Simulated assay, not measured.
Amino acid sequence: MRRPLLRIVLVFALPAVLVGVWWAASAGSEDVYWPPLGTILRTFPEVWTGERWRGDVLPSVLRLAAGYALAAVAGVALGTLVGSRRRVRAVCEPVVEFLRAVPPPVLVPVIMLFAGIGDTMKILVIAGGCVWPVLLNTVEGVRAVDPVMAETARSYGITGVARLRDVVLPSAGPQIFAGLRQALSIGIILMVISEMFAASNGLGFAVVQFQRSFAIPGMWTGILLLGLLGFVLSVLFQLVERRVLGWYHGLRDASRRS
Protein backbone atom coordinates (compact mmCIF):
# COMPACT_ATOMS: atom_id res chain seq x y z
CA MET A 1 0.00 0.00 0.00
CA ARG A 2 2.83 2.36 0.87
CA ARG A 3 4.67 1.82 -2.42
CA PRO A 4 1.73 2.68 -4.76
CA LEU A 5 0.97 5.74 -2.62
CA LEU A 6 4.58 6.89 -2.84
CA ARG A 7 4.50 6.38 -6.60
CA ILE A 8 1.37 8.54 -6.94
CA VAL A 9 2.98 11.28 -4.84
CA LEU A 10 6.12 11.20 -7.01
CA VAL A 11 4.05 11.39 -10.21
CA PHE A 12 2.08 14.46 -9.14
CA ALA A 13 4.72 16.23 -7.01
CA LEU A 14 6.60 17.97 -9.84
CA PRO A 15 3.44 19.03 -11.77
CA ALA A 16 2.03 20.48 -8.55
CA VAL A 17 5.24 22.43 -7.92
CA LEU A 18 5.30 23.76 -11.49
CA VAL A 19 1.65 24.82 -11.31
CA GLY A 20 2.38 26.59 -8.02
CA VAL A 21 5.36 28.41 -9.53
CA TRP A 22 3.30 29.41 -12.57
CA TRP A 23 0.45 30.64 -10.34
CA ALA A 24 2.82 32.72 -8.19
CA ALA A 25 4.82 34.09 -11.14
CA SER A 26 1.74 35.15 -13.12
CA ALA A 27 -0.36 36.45 -10.21
CA GLY A 28 -1.29 40.08 -10.80
CA SER A 29 0.19 40.07 -14.30
CA GLU A 30 -1.20 42.77 -16.60
CA ASP A 31 0.72 41.56 -19.64
CA VAL A 32 -1.71 40.75 -22.45
CA TYR A 33 0.34 37.75 -23.56
CA TRP A 34 1.02 36.47 -20.03
CA PRO A 35 -2.33 36.37 -18.22
CA PRO A 36 -2.58 35.06 -14.65
CA LEU A 37 -3.03 31.31 -14.36
CA GLY A 38 -6.25 31.91 -12.44
CA THR A 39 -7.70 33.76 -15.43
CA ILE A 40 -6.73 30.92 -17.75
CA LEU A 41 -8.34 28.32 -15.49
CA ARG A 42 -11.54 30.36 -15.25
CA THR A 43 -11.61 30.70 -19.02
CA PHE A 44 -11.12 26.98 -19.62
CA PRO A 45 -14.73 25.80 -19.00
CA GLU A 46 -16.07 28.82 -20.88
CA VAL A 47 -14.05 27.96 -23.99
CA TRP A 48 -14.11 24.17 -24.03
CA THR A 49 -17.81 23.54 -24.02
CA GLY A 50 -19.47 20.37 -25.28
CA GLU A 51 -19.74 21.83 -28.76
CA ARG A 52 -16.01 22.56 -28.92
CA TRP A 53 -15.16 19.09 -27.64
CA ARG A 54 -17.20 17.59 -30.47
CA GLY A 55 -16.06 20.08 -33.09
CA ASP A 56 -12.33 20.39 -32.29
CA VAL A 57 -11.07 17.85 -29.74
CA LEU A 58 -12.78 14.74 -31.11
CA PRO A 59 -11.65 15.29 -34.76
CA SER A 60 -8.07 15.85 -33.57
CA VAL A 61 -8.04 12.67 -31.48
CA LEU A 62 -9.53 10.63 -34.34
CA ARG A 63 -6.91 11.93 -36.80
CA LEU A 64 -4.15 11.20 -34.33
CA ALA A 65 -5.48 7.68 -33.72
CA ALA A 66 -5.78 6.95 -37.45
CA GLY A 67 -2.31 8.27 -38.33
CA TYR A 68 -0.69 6.59 -35.33
CA ALA A 69 -2.34 3.24 -36.06
CA LEU A 70 -1.27 3.43 -39.72
CA ALA A 71 2.31 4.23 -38.70
CA ALA A 72 2.36 1.43 -36.10
CA VAL A 73 1.19 -1.23 -38.55
CA ALA A 74 3.46 -0.07 -41.37
CA GLY A 75 6.45 0.46 -39.08
CA VAL A 76 6.24 -2.97 -37.40
CA ALA A 77 5.59 -4.79 -40.70
CA LEU A 78 8.37 -3.08 -42.66
CA GLY A 79 10.75 -3.13 -39.69
CA THR A 80 10.27 -6.88 -39.26
CA LEU A 81 10.96 -7.45 -42.95
CA VAL A 82 14.04 -5.23 -43.04
CA GLY A 83 15.40 -6.51 -39.73
CA SER A 84 15.07 -10.19 -40.61
CA ARG A 85 16.52 -9.99 -44.13
CA ARG A 86 20.13 -8.85 -44.45
CA ARG A 87 19.93 -8.15 -48.19
CA VAL A 88 16.72 -6.17 -47.83
CA ARG A 89 18.35 -4.15 -45.05
CA ALA A 90 21.39 -3.42 -47.21
CA VAL A 91 19.19 -2.16 -50.04
CA CYS A 92 16.73 -0.17 -47.92
CA GLU A 93 19.05 1.39 -45.35
CA PRO A 94 20.27 4.36 -47.47
CA VAL A 95 16.70 5.21 -48.54
CA VAL A 96 15.38 4.91 -44.99
CA GLU A 97 18.14 7.14 -43.63
CA PHE A 98 17.41 9.75 -46.32
CA LEU A 99 13.64 9.78 -45.79
CA ARG A 100 13.76 9.88 -42.00
CA ALA A 101 16.07 12.91 -42.16
CA VAL A 102 13.37 14.92 -43.97
CA PRO A 103 11.33 16.88 -41.36
CA PRO A 104 7.67 15.81 -41.67
CA PRO A 105 6.30 19.40 -41.48
CA VAL A 106 8.19 20.17 -44.70
CA LEU A 107 6.09 17.51 -46.45
CA VAL A 108 2.78 19.18 -45.54
CA PRO A 109 2.60 21.33 -48.73
CA VAL A 110 3.62 18.33 -50.85
CA ILE A 111 1.02 16.04 -49.29
CA MET A 112 -1.59 18.76 -49.74
CA LEU A 113 -0.98 18.65 -53.51
CA PHE A 114 -1.87 14.95 -53.67
CA ALA A 115 -4.29 14.46 -50.78
CA GLY A 116 -6.00 17.83 -50.63
CA ILE A 117 -6.67 19.73 -47.42
CA GLY A 118 -9.05 17.28 -45.73
CA ASP A 119 -8.52 14.69 -43.04
CA THR A 120 -6.53 12.44 -45.39
CA MET A 121 -3.72 14.99 -45.56
CA LYS A 122 -3.55 15.35 -41.80
CA ILE A 123 -3.58 11.58 -41.22
CA LEU A 124 -0.79 11.08 -43.77
CA VAL A 125 1.33 13.81 -42.15
CA ILE A 126 0.94 12.16 -38.74
CA ALA A 127 1.67 8.70 -40.13
CA GLY A 128 4.64 9.96 -42.15
CA GLY A 129 6.33 11.32 -39.04
CA CYS A 130 5.38 8.54 -36.62
CA VAL A 131 6.46 5.62 -38.80
CA TRP A 132 10.22 6.19 -38.51
CA PRO A 133 10.82 5.60 -34.78
CA VAL A 134 8.58 2.52 -34.97
CA LEU A 135 10.33 1.16 -38.04
CA LEU A 136 13.89 1.79 -36.84
CA ASN A 137 13.26 0.39 -33.35
CA THR A 138 11.57 -2.66 -34.84
CA VAL A 139 14.57 -3.26 -37.11
CA GLU A 140 16.95 -3.11 -34.16
CA GLY A 141 14.69 -5.28 -32.03
CA VAL A 142 14.41 -7.97 -34.71
CA ARG A 143 18.16 -7.92 -35.29
CA ALA A 144 18.78 -8.35 -31.56
CA VAL A 145 16.80 -11.58 -31.22
CA ASP A 146 18.81 -14.03 -29.11
CA PRO A 147 20.68 -16.34 -31.54
CA VAL A 148 20.33 -19.26 -29.13
CA MET A 149 16.55 -18.76 -28.99
CA ALA A 150 16.35 -18.46 -32.77
CA GLU A 151 18.43 -21.61 -33.28
CA THR A 152 16.35 -23.52 -30.73
CA ALA A 153 13.17 -22.53 -32.56
CA ARG A 154 14.68 -23.68 -35.84
CA SER A 155 15.70 -26.99 -34.32
CA TYR A 156 12.15 -27.62 -33.14
CA GLY A 157 10.77 -26.79 -36.57
CA ILE A 158 9.21 -23.48 -35.52
CA THR A 159 9.30 -21.48 -38.73
CA GLY A 160 7.26 -19.02 -40.73
CA VAL A 161 4.35 -17.31 -38.99
CA ALA A 162 4.80 -19.36 -35.81
CA ARG A 163 8.42 -18.22 -35.48
CA LEU A 164 7.40 -14.62 -36.08
CA ARG A 165 4.56 -14.78 -33.54
CA ASP A 166 6.25 -16.80 -30.79
CA VAL A 167 9.92 -15.83 -31.07
CA VAL A 168 10.69 -12.70 -33.10
CA LEU A 169 7.93 -10.28 -32.07
CA PRO A 170 7.97 -11.14 -28.34
CA SER A 171 11.74 -10.78 -28.26
CA ALA A 172 11.62 -7.47 -30.15
CA GLY A 173 8.57 -6.28 -28.17
CA PRO A 174 10.38 -3.96 -25.70
CA GLN A 175 12.21 -2.25 -28.55
CA ILE A 176 9.03 -1.94 -30.61
CA PHE A 177 7.19 -0.32 -27.71
CA ALA A 178 10.08 2.10 -27.24
CA GLY A 179 9.52 3.21 -30.84
CA LEU A 180 5.77 3.42 -30.32
CA ARG A 181 6.30 5.65 -27.27
CA GLN A 182 8.50 8.02 -29.27
CA ALA A 183 6.00 8.03 -32.11
CA LEU A 184 3.15 9.04 -29.79
CA SER A 185 4.78 12.34 -28.82
CA ILE A 186 5.74 13.01 -32.44
CA GLY A 187 2.16 12.29 -33.50
CA ILE A 188 0.73 14.90 -31.12
CA ILE A 189 3.13 17.52 -32.48
CA LEU A 190 2.29 16.69 -36.10
CA MET A 191 -1.43 16.64 -35.31
CA VAL A 192 -1.20 20.26 -34.20
CA ILE A 193 1.03 21.32 -37.10
CA SER A 194 -1.17 19.67 -39.73
CA GLU A 195 -4.25 21.45 -38.32
CA MET A 196 -2.57 24.81 -38.69
CA PHE A 197 -2.59 24.42 -42.48
CA ALA A 198 -5.89 24.98 -44.31
CA ALA A 199 -7.98 23.44 -41.52
CA SER A 200 -11.48 24.27 -40.35
CA ASN A 201 -11.42 22.45 -37.00
CA GLY A 202 -9.10 20.71 -34.56
CA LEU A 203 -6.99 21.74 -31.59
CA GLY A 204 -4.23 23.26 -33.71
CA PHE A 205 -6.79 25.27 -35.69
CA ALA A 206 -8.47 26.48 -32.46
CA VAL A 207 -5.19 27.64 -30.90
CA VAL A 208 -4.27 29.61 -34.03
CA GLN A 209 -7.73 31.18 -34.21
CA PHE A 210 -7.49 32.29 -30.59
CA GLN A 211 -4.07 33.80 -31.26
CA ARG A 212 -5.24 35.65 -34.39
CA SER A 213 -8.26 37.07 -32.60
CA PHE A 214 -6.14 38.08 -29.57
CA ALA A 215 -8.14 35.78 -27.29
CA ILE A 216 -4.94 35.08 -25.36
CA PRO A 217 -6.48 33.31 -22.33
CA GLY A 218 -8.36 31.05 -24.79
CA MET A 219 -5.09 30.33 -26.59
CA TRP A 220 -3.48 29.31 -23.30
CA THR A 221 -6.41 27.01 -22.51
CA GLY A 222 -5.77 25.25 -25.83
CA ILE A 223 -2.11 24.78 -24.93
CA LEU A 224 -3.08 23.42 -21.51
CA LEU A 225 -5.56 21.03 -23.13
CA LEU A 226 -2.87 19.74 -25.48
CA GLY A 227 -0.60 19.09 -22.49
CA LEU A 228 -3.37 17.25 -20.65
CA LEU A 229 -4.13 15.21 -23.78
CA GLY A 230 -0.48 14.19 -24.05
CA PHE A 231 -0.42 13.20 -20.37
CA VAL A 232 -3.59 11.10 -20.64
CA LEU A 233 -2.35 9.35 -23.78
CA SER A 234 0.99 8.64 -22.10
CA VAL A 235 -0.75 7.05 -19.10
CA LEU A 236 -2.96 4.92 -21.37
CA PHE A 237 0.11 3.87 -23.36
CA GLN A 238 1.90 2.77 -20.18
CA LEU A 239 -1.11 0.69 -19.13
CA VAL A 240 -1.20 -1.05 -22.52
CA GLU A 241 2.56 -1.58 -22.46
CA ARG A 242 2.40 -3.05 -18.96
CA ARG A 243 -0.28 -5.48 -20.07
CA VAL A 244 1.35 -6.56 -23.34
CA LEU A 245 4.90 -6.72 -21.93
CA GLY A 246 3.95 -8.08 -18.53
CA TRP A 247 6.55 -10.84 -18.80
CA TYR A 248 9.29 -8.30 -19.56
CA HIS A 249 8.47 -5.98 -16.67
CA GLY A 250 8.13 -9.02 -14.39
CA LEU A 251 11.66 -10.10 -15.27
CA ARG A 252 12.98 -6.58 -14.68
CA ASP A 253 11.26 -6.31 -11.30
CA ALA A 254 12.59 -9.72 -10.30
CA SER A 255 16.16 -8.80 -11.29
CA ARG A 256 15.95 -5.59 -9.26
CA ARG A 257 14.79 -7.44 -6.15
CA SER A 258 17.50 -10.08 -6.44
Rank of each mutant, 00 (worst) to 15 (best):
A153C: 01
A71P: 06
S194W: 02
P147F: 09
V125F: 03
E51A: 15
A172S: 07
P217F: 09
V11Y: 04
M219P: 04
A254M: 06
I111S: 06
A150Y: 05
A65K: 05
V139W: 04
V161Q: 05
V167I: 14
G67N: 07
A183E: 04
L228C: 14
V82I: 15
L113S: 12
V106Y: 01
E195Q: 03
A144F: 09
A27Q: 06
A206M: 14
A199H: 08
A13T: 09
L107I: 05
S255W: 09
L203T: 12
G79T: 08
P36D: 06
V82D: 05
E151H: 06
V11F: 14
C92A: 15
P105M: 08
V91D: 04
S200K: 14
F237Q: 02
D56W: 08
R242K: 03
W22E: 06
L64R: 01
A198I: 09
L37G: 03
A25G: 08
V168E: 00
F98D: 02
V232T: 13
E30D: 13
W23S: 12
G246Q: 07
G129L: 09
V240N: 00
I40P: 02
R54Y: 07
I188W: 15
V57M: 04
L124Q: 10
F205R: 03
V134T: 10
L190S: 07
V161G: 01
A153Y: 02
G187E: 04
V96Q: 06
A69L: 15
L58Y: 11
V57A: 15
V142Q: 03
S255K: 05
F12G: 00
A206L: 15
R85C: 05
V131Y: 10
A198C: 06
A215V: 09
V95N: 02
A72H: 01
L251H: 11
R163E: 05
V21K: 02
A254R: 08
V76R: 04
Q209A: 14
M191F: 11
G250P: 03
V88L: 15
P103Q: 11
T39E: 13
E97G: 01
A90E: 15
V148H: 07
P174W: 13
W34E: 00
V19S: 07
I216F: 14
V9A: 15
E46D: 13
Y156E: 00
L113F: 15
G50C: 07
R3K: 08
V131G: 10
P36T: 02
M112E: 12
W132C: 08
G187Q: 06
G218E: 10
I188M: 14
S60G: 08
R243H: 07
F231V: 11
F205W: 15
I117G: 10
F214G: 03
G230Q: 09
S234C: 07
I126M: 05
P59V: 13
L81T: 05
W34S: 12
W53P: 01
Y156L: 15
P15M: 11
P147V: 09
P45L: 10
G50M: 07
G75W: 07
G246W: 03
Y68F: 15
L184G: 04
A72G: 06
T138K: 06
V61S: 04
